[in-house]
Amino acid sequence: MNINVASWFDIPVTDMQRAKNFYQTLLATTFKDDEMNGLQMAIFASEEGAVSGMLVQGECYQPSSTGTVVYFNGGEDLNLPLDRGLQNGGSPILPKTPIHDGECGYFALLSDSEGNRIGLYSPS
């Protein structure tokens, strides 16, 4: 039985290369490029069995600042990816914020290079 609630996510983009640069810098990750049915896709590198997703550009995919929020793993120190994101075209929405006085970790919200609202989470 899969214990993850989510199994996949799509992040809409309008400029694939700009978005890939943003997320590669933010998360220190790589992508596998693909195309299907007129959609341009960049799939996040992930370990076997891990929940993952992709950047996707196509007519029916529009970035949104008010839609669903995907929270990314911010590692041990949320400040590191948050700073990288803000220095690479992201805009602050909510700074690093403790959850229950920090007992449950920290989160932050920012706007990505495409205008999507995204989150970061870390235990410290």
Rank of each mutant, 00 (worst) to 15 (best):
E47M: 08
E48T: 10
V51E: 01
V51T: 14
S52R: 06
G53E: 02
G53D: 02
G53R: 00
M54Q: 10
M54Y: 00
L55W: 01
V56S: 00
G58T: 04
E59N: 07
C60R: 05
C60N: 11
C60F: 01
Y61E: 03
Y61C: 08
Q62K: 14
Q62S: 15
P63H: 02
P63C: 06
S64G: 09
S65T: 08
T66V: 12
T66F: 07
T66W: 04
G67C: 06
T68H: 05
V69S: 08
Y71P: 02
N73A: 04
G74F: 06
G75T: 05
G75P: 08
E76P: 12
E76M: 13
E76A: 15
D77R: 12
D77Q: 15
P81A: 12
P81E: 12
L82T: 02
R84E: 08
G85E: 07
G85N: 06
G85T: 08
Q87W: 00
N88Y: 04
N88A: 15
N88S: 14
N88D: 09
G89F: 10
G89Y: 13
G90R: 04
S91W: 00
S91L: 15
P92C: 04
I93W: 01
I93G: 01
L94F: 03
P95Q: 09
T97G: 07
T97V: 08
T97W: 04
T97C: 12
P98M: 06
P98T: 09
I99E: 08
H100L: 13
E103C: 02
E103Q: 15
C104Y: 15
C104D: 14
G105F: 04
F107W: 13
F107Y: 15
S113I: 10
E114I: 07
E114P: 05
N116M: 13
I118K: 02
